[in-house]
Design a protein around this nucleic acid. Structure first.
Length: 492
RNA sequence: GGCGCCGUGGCCGAGUGGCUAGGCAGGGGCCUGCAAAGCCCCCUACUCCGGUUCGAAUCCGGACGGCGCCUCCA
């Protein structure tokens, strides 16, 4: 079977092929940089990272664009309230966003254009829409005439009449649209007190671009008029993506994005995250509480993207243990393999356990791939991986060093392959590295004392030292090759 | 009010008309000075009520419950 995605456009699972062989062009709705992103935002971004990594894993080159919305009502309001230029609000938020991005181990995307730096492209797009006669002008603003574009609402099977009956349309009377469904392409004039904060010249006079415009303009600028995948959160389907698609296709006469993939929302403790409920988390706040990025990433990835995911602190601890199990297996493979030369000895048993391990790795790969091929079924992919871990551990148990080395050689690529998609082990290893820099020397010293105590069979003293070390979040294991230490699987 | 999603074992979370994922937690065992890690075994579920079917947790209808969208929230 090949890669399939549930396409919001058409509401069904479809086989995926890229327009141009070997390369996937995708557009991701990025952050509005008015305030630090929260963990719910990152649910979508982490999933998009998985999507990207999996496409790469499958052999595609990925060209991804993610916009930075640095002009909208909220950023403008903040700038006006504080009496500062827009950038003074947006740039620090943007910087912290990318810090979080890095912390969660997200791959960098090829293009992260800022809306404010692409206003020319947006103006150009509005001109094209005027030429196509689907745009009209009212009081210095330009609107998209929904009823002049027959394909409007195709993304969601929108009932053409339903919006007129909507109860919230009245809130829009600050604009003078012909039809309540129409949306603004260019917000003309210096409205309110935003005049000095976000105003650009245009053929229609000063103003600023409408919300949906930036995505259309930047997607087409970097990816072309038609491209493969457009992603975002479900909340963006309507109106944002519906309008984005309409204005793009009306301007070009060509299909815009072919696959529209959407991530469901994150719930926290079973409810929508909100400050008033006290369940509002940012990456920074979770880290301050001692939770690890690898745990957070794992938890965010562990549910299917079209399903709401319930984020809880308990879940985070479970995630930490799950990552710990994977990481322990990886370390065991490293240790088993490391003990021997990379080439098997000449007198190796031809029916070596490596064959069984190789079969296990193949079985894993096949299950892993068919799971993710199926609309990114991460839960099944993880199940396959944990089966690899269990069976691999079983093979390793009691295997002589030489056999263990062969098994490890066969299995390590599988685990590495897993992590190219999930990216949690690399993150965990990084965390261990950072921790060991501070702890390593102390732990090693205490461990020496403990080893001496054990040699004297002074087990009370040895256990006391072990507890002492554990109190600093480090777990000790006694192995035939001597004591080993690692970060304890959860943080207290 | 309109549209839509979902309700799985202590917790998280897949899935299929019959062969009953996986992780975490818990119990037992092997191993260990004791642990830890690992392995083996156990705990075997599908909101409720009807219906279809030889057979439904899986299909249909209804009820109850949770969640989302309905013009600038991922």
């Amino acid at each position: 079977m090949s890669l399939r995605f549930y396409n919001t456009l058409g509401r069904k699972v479809e086989a995926f092929e890229s327009l141009e062989p070997g390369i996937v062009r995708m557009y991701t709705c990025g952050p509005t940089v008015y305030d630090r992103a929260h963990i719910g935002n990152f649910r979508a971004f982490v999933w998009e990272d998985l999507l990207r990594r999996y496409l790469e894993w499958k052999g595609w080159e990925v060209v991804q664009v993610m916009n930075i919305t640095d002009v909208d009502d909220r950023t403008i309001r903040a700038a006006v309230n504080q009496g500062v230029p827009l950038e003074e609000i947006t740039r620090p938020v943007e910087a912290s966003f990318f810090e979080d991005w890095e912390t969660l181990g997200l791959e960098s995307v090829e293009h992260t254009p800022r809306a404010t730096e692409h206003v020319e492209s947006m103006i150009e797009l509005v001109r094209r829409l005027e030429e196509s006669e689907v745009a009209y002008s009212r009081e210095g603003s330009i609107y998209f005439a929904v009823d002049r574009f027959p394909g409007y609402g195709r993304l969601i099977d929108l009932d053409p009449g339903s919006l007129k009956a909507g109860t919230r349309v009245e809130g829009d009377e600050e604009y003078s649209k012909d039809d309540p469904r129409d949306f603004v392409l260019w917000k003309g004039g210096a409205r309110e007190s935003e005049s000095n904060v976000a105003v650009w010249d245009s053929p229609w006079g000063p103003g600023r671009p409408g919300w949906h415009l930036e995505c259309s303009a930047m997607a087409m600028e970097y990816l072309g008029e038609s491209f493969d995948i457009h992603t975002g959160g479900v909340d963006n389907i309507f109106p944002h993506h519906v309008n984005e698609m309409a204005q793009s296709e009306a301007a070009t006469g060509r299909p815009f994005a072919r696959f529209w993939l959407h991530a469901a929302h994150l719930l926290v403790d079973g409810r929508k995250m909100s400050k008033s409920l006290g369940n509002f988390h940012t990456l920074a706040s979770l880290q301050e509480s001692g939770y690890r990025p690898s745990s957070i990433r794992y938890l965010l990835l562990s549910g299917h993207h079209r399903q709401q995911l319930n984020f809880t602190l308990e879940g985070l601890e479970q995630a930490a243990r799950s990552v710990g199990r994977l990481r322990e297996f990886e370390r065991r493979l490293e240790a088993s393999e490391g003990g021997f030369a990379s080439e098997p000895p000449a007198d190796a048993d031809p029916v070596a356990p490596a064959d069984a391990a190789g079969e296990l790795a193949d079985k894993w790969r096949s299950s892993f791939e068919s799971a993710l091929d199926d609309d990114l079924n991460v839960a099944d992919a993880l199940a396959a991986t944990f089966e690899l871990v269990r069976e691999g551990n079983a093979m390793l148990d009691g295997a002589p060093d030489r056999e263990a080395a062969a098994i490890a050689r066969a299995l390590r690529p599988a685990i590495a392959s897993f992590d190219r998609v999930f990216g949690v082990l690399a993150l965990r290893a990084r965390e261990e590295g950072a921790a060991s820099a501070e702890l390593s020397e102390w732990v090693e010293a205490r461990l020496r004392a403990r080893t001496e105590a054990r040699a004297r069979r002074q087990f009370d003293e040895a256990d006391r030292i072990r507890d002492e070390i554990l109190a600093r979040g480090v777990a000790i294991e006694d192995t035939p090759d001597g004591p080993r230490w690692r970060l304890a699987s959860t943080v207290d």
